[in-house]
Design a protein around this nucleic acid. Structure first.
Lengths: 335, 335
DNA sequence: CTGTTAGCGCGTTCAG
DNA sequence: CTGAACGCGCTAACAG
């Protein structure tokens, strides 16, 4: 249905320049005669016009789009970051290209390459590998790139992270304050820099709370999944013969598996068990236990990442920015 | 860093055609001399080459991208559909442009327009309005479009839906079978076609179970949110003075608010309360109550929607396709 | 006030 | 075996 500028010009008997002026609302600024303008406007109202962004992008070397690469689009954390990013994009009429890397370096590289080939104006990556995707090295005109969520030390790029040290420290201190007994930290995806930081902060907080004997009570698994949590807790129960009095989990997925393993054990989930976990969810309210959760600030993460691209604002400062985590107390102490 | 075909041709002293043949792996098919090929290959290995998808799209009138418009990218249901769609896109080297409509018809229209302007090869929409986005009517070359999740009766387009009638029927029957007492259905977003279907199926199932007196026990709210759920349950408690023995919710968000209102009431959440809800979540396991949930099949939804675009496969059948829902029983009966 | 034109980089077609 | 040229639709610079 809709036409190109060229066609409109031919059909109305004016030039492309004139058409572009009335389309761009620059009619009076360039003193296009009213009848000319109306003729063009009438034609457009009747036949429609949609700008061809592809041609525009080719000409301007600017696609009005930004790429996002995350391990899993369905992960609630990444989904929230993405949603916020998309909102920011819409605010300056950009569009978001979302690609999943599934924690696979090869896929991640291909994803970055695909985005660069499409000429994205910026690219936000939650990296799943220590190496820089080679596409970022080879490309002709590399757009601004930002890393987030995981710090593999690409100092050349701005990096936006939750303050895992603060978050894990707060969480550990609070849980230890509630529970004088033993405490175990169940960690999935244990080799990632994020989790390493959390483990370190846990250990430090244990010492700081005068409980250095707890420093070592960390159970680690390479995967981050309910299966992994289930495995770690099952092993723990087998080894020690009884559940801990307090536990920490590195993610909700891990917590899910950990609780499932507890349920299957004869003892079930003791109501006195104090639970701390990364990632918050309103459904944690459903537990009768005291629950503390660390909520990452997805909005701030997205906003800082977006700002670091320098798409609408002139230019932000580079370097690493740490976003504070908030400690949530999900169930008040029983009266 | 990386060059265009033209630049490579100039630098290696051959023609663009030759370069394109070696890039395309058609070197021997066109009997390019080995030394020519190696010269080009060496140059590319050294300087890199990334295809300009924008120029390609302009030429071929095909962008290798598909658009997705949903009310909320962070909503777990939509996020899962999106993740699966993205996977399918990657399978045929397309890329996914995701845009949120925030249940706003104007935003939705703008989103669709933005995607069409970018020349997406297909567009998947979870519509938030009865009207067809006008961009779909005005555009020059409208790509194949598919609607999903909500049926506003755009019969001209393929539509992929969960079988809400079956899902709500199964859920109602199961909950009524567990609980002989009263039962209330708390509905958010009550005017949407999806929820209307669920309400109808609920009423029918009540009659079918010989409990026609429950047909009217539906509480409706225009919003779908914890606030709405809280409001409806609070009103209910105020009016009747006691909680129902069984309840149904149209979404997890509603359930969250409903349970919160119950908690705040003096009685709290009775362990005997039978709960049914749309949308499943593993955390429902955290409740001590019997819980039944309706899980939509996001994978099948995404796959059918994608297939209906006809991007890789030749051409699928149009019309409406209903995806069955699965009833999940979250907590076994207490021994 | 309006018209003309040269690319952006790639794919295709035709001509050697 | 290789080269040249056109056009996709738009922008921007220049020419009246």
């Amino acid at each position: 249905m809709a036409k190109t500028v060229e066609e409109i010009a031919r059909a109305t008997g004016v030039s492309v320049t004139t058409v572009r002026f009335v389309i761009g609302g620059q009619a009076e600024r360039h003193r296009i005669s009213v009848q000319t303008r109306e003729r063009v406007e009438r034609y457009i109202a009747e036949h429609g016009y949609v700008l061809n962004h592809t041609a525009r992008a080719l000409k301007l070397r600017r696609s009005e789009s930004v790429g996002l690469v995350v391990p899993d689009l369905a992960n609630p954390f990444f989904a929230r970051v993405m949603a916020r990013l998309e909102g920011l994009c819409g605010g300056c009429s950009h569009v978001l290209l979302a690609v999943a890397s599934h924690e696979d370096p090869a896929l991640e590289s291909r994803a970055v390459a695909a985005l660069l080939a499409r000429g994205v104006d910026g690219i936000v990556i939650a990296p799943s590998q220590p190496d820089l995707p080679d596409a970022l090295r080879v490309a002709k005109r590399v757009p601004p790139a930002v890393f987030f969520d995981r710090d593999y030390g690409h100092v050349a790029y701005p990096t936006v992270l939750s303050d895992n040290t603060q978050g894990a420290g707060d969480l550990t201190r609070r849980v230890l304050a509630e529970s004088p007994g033993d405490c175990v930290f169940f960690c999935g995806h244990a080799e990632s820099p994020t989790i390493r930081l959390r483990i370190q902060a846990y250990a430090d907080a244990c010492s700081g709370a005068g409980r250095p004997e707890l420093r070592g009570s960390v159970r680690a698994h390479p995967e981050d999944s309910p299966r992994a949590g289930w495995q770690l807790m099952s092993d723990y129960l087998k080894e020690t013969g009884r559940p801990p009095q307090a536990l920490l989990c590195s993610s909700l997925l891990m917590l899910e598996g950990v609780l499932q393993a507890l349920k299957q054990a004869a003892a079930g989930i003791a109501p006195g068990l104090v639970i701390g976990t990364f990632d918050d969810h309103t459904m944690l309210d459903l537990l009768p236990n005291r629950v503390f959760s660390v909520r990452q600030d997805e909005v701030a993460l997205a906003e800082h990442a977006f700002a670091a691209l320098g798409l609408d604002a002139p230019a932000p400062a580079a370097g690493q920015v740490l976003i504070p985590c908030r400690l949530i107390e999900r169930n008040a102490a029983p009266a």
